[in-house]
């Protein structure tokens, strides 16, 4: 028996800790989800249900198609606001809260790499947003379905009273149906989720160097707002200050660093009925994934040797 064999037989076996563990990330993700649910996040769904019910009963001088379109616009608008607002607020409070509760020290004292901690927190926020969006979509689809049935019946009755031919009635009802429940609306939901993912990743990056929650929220909101029009503004400034060094040194880096959220605004037109294919959505998902990966990497770079 060799010396090493003797020593291993005598000392208790040390379990091998994997360098990267999806299981550990999942545990952090679910605990973050629970933490956020306990913050009464899902109460927003009550507000959402009231809003959708209100929008579906609004009878303005609309055509049948417009009635359905307005319900969709109001619902997806609310989903969009909820998702980015939640992505900023929830991500901004997570790390400071863990610090305040001393949970962060307990977690980092264990063999949990900081990358896993950050990913667990981010995925927890995304899981909460995802669940909330799915519930909102189900609620909204129910309202839209019943509204569609009512509106179609009214429209058919009105067209028949006008003495329209069956062929014309069918064509007209098809136009109304195009604004009703469609599979394509799932793509709009995905686009909202992708945008919220990028917002959450940006917020997490800011929170790794921010000194307070308020600072994180303000900076993330500014990035979000600027990210919607910085390319438009940059185009204007570059034109006005053509060739100037200021334009090159100030405007260009800002455009490079801040994400272009306008790309994710496809939701508006998908809801309006513009056709979209799976390939387009895959490209959009790829871009969002790239953003999340790079911002998480930079967040890790800042967080990895941060002292608490």
């Amino acid at each position: 028996m060799s010396e090493s064999q003797v020593s291993s037989a005598e000392s208790p076996a040390i379990p091998r800790v994997p360098v990267f563990s999806p299981g550990r990330i999942w545990v952090l993700t679910t605990s973050t989800f629970t933490q956020l649910v306990r913050m009464k996040t899902f109460y927003f769904l009550i507000v959402f249900a009231i809003l959708v019910a209100g929008a579906s009963n609004l009878n303005l001088l609309y055509t049948s198609a417009q009635k359905l379109r307005m319900l969709k616009d109001a619902s997806f608008g609310a989903m969009s606001i909820f998702s980015w607002l939640f992505a900023i607020a929830a991500t901004a409070v997570l790390i400071p809260r863990d610090l305040e509760d001393r949970t962060l020290y307990t977690i980092l004292a264990k063999p949990v790499p900081r990358l896993e901690y950050l990913l667990g927190k981010l995925f927890g926020v995304l899981l909460t947003i995802g669940v909330a969006l799915v519930v909102m979509q189900i609620l909204f689809t129910g309202f839209l379905f019943f509204r569609e049935v009512t509106v179609l019946a009214e429209e058919r009755q009105s067209l028949e009273a006008q003495g329209m031919s069956a062929e014309d009635i069918r064509a007209q009802l098809e136009l109304v149906r195009a604004q009703g429940v469609q599979w394509q609306l799932i793509y709009a939901l995905i686009a909202i989720f992708l945008k919220a993912s990028v917002v959450a990743a940006v917020t997490m990056l800011v929170s790794t160097f921010a000194s307070s929650t308020l600072f994180t929220m303000i900076v993330a909101t500014i990035v979000f707002v600027v990210g919607h029009f910085h390319k438009l503004a940059a185009g204007y400034w570059m034109h006005e200050l053509s060739g100037s060094l200021v334009a090159k040194l100030v405007v260009k880096p800002i455009v490079m660093i801040i994400p272009d959220f306008r790309v994710f605004n496809v939701t508006e037109n998908i809801v309006g009925g513009t056709p979209v294919d799976a390939g387009t959505m895959l490209t959009l998902a790829g871009l969002a994934l790239l953003y999340v990966a790079v911002y998480s990497a930079v967040a890790l770079y800042l967080f990895i040797d941060k002292e608490f």
Binding site: I257, L287, A297
Partner: peptide, 27 residues
């Protein structure tokens, strides 16, 4: 890192925006 990423993603993002505007996905 962010600047390098910005340089890399800019052509991809600009291309996507152009395509989306052309296909009516972005107004």
């Amino acid at each position: 890192i962010l600047l390098v990423f910005g340089l890399v993603k800019a052509p991809l993002e600009n291309g996507m925006t152009r395509r989306y505007v052309e296909s009516g996905l972005i107004a």
